[in-house]
């Protein structure tokens, strides 16, 4: 079970499945099924550098070599999971990601991160001055794009 599905309380991150909680250094603090145990330092999870910029949380797999790309003028709208790879999402959008990792799909911008084989997390951003109607429209565009990407991926995988 990925800790991404977990919950944060104070300065600890807990797993949603059995509630094991971890401190910021990655060390396990508590195993609820065995409350009498103080977990040794050896029980830990991997940690990654993390930073927040323009409303987006960025994680680096290793030590980052550069700051996250600037997203000035954009705001995050929603995140959704697509059962498709990045290539299929780019094909659905009709455009490749820029060097910054942004996909410019008309009125929306996408940040893509591959979660596992054939599964991608899509973060949707819109112009900061978009009103409620434009944001609803953008959410629908993103939904349509996801479906299109999943169709492309399914056809590709079937071949």
């Amino acid at each position: 079970m990925s800790l991404s599905h977990g919950f944060v309380r104070g300065e600890t991150l807990s797993c949603i499945y059995h509630g094991w909680s971890y401190g910021q250094a990655g060390n396990c603090l508590r195993i609820p099924a065995h409350p009498g145990l103080t977990p040794p330092d050896a029980i830990r999870t991997v940690t990654h550098p993390v930073t927040e910029a323009d409303g987006v949380v960025w994680v680096a797999v290793d030590e980052p070599t550069a700051a996250p790309p600037g997203l000035a003028g954009l705001v995050p709208l929603r995140s959704l999971t697509a059962f498709a790879d990045i290539a299929a999402i780019e094909a659905a959008a009709g455009v490749k990601a820029t060097a910054d990792g942004l996909v410019n799909a008309g009125d929306i911008r996408l940040l893509l991160s591959s979660t596992r084989d054939g599964e991608t997390l899509i973060h949707v951003l819109v112009s900061a001055d978009a009103g409620p109607a434009a944001r609803i429209a953008a959410a629908r565009i993103a939904e349509g794009l996801r479906r299109k990407a999943e169709d492309i991926y399914k056809k590709g995988a079937a071949r």
Partner: peptide, 20 residues
């Protein structure tokens, strides 16, 4: 059973009763 307080919260289990 250890997942009851976290997955079936307030039905099959609840904190602080987490000990197995």
């Amino acid at each position: 059973i250890a997942h009851f307080p976290f997955v079936h919260t307030d039905i099959l289990g609840a904190e602080p009763h987490t000990e197995v």
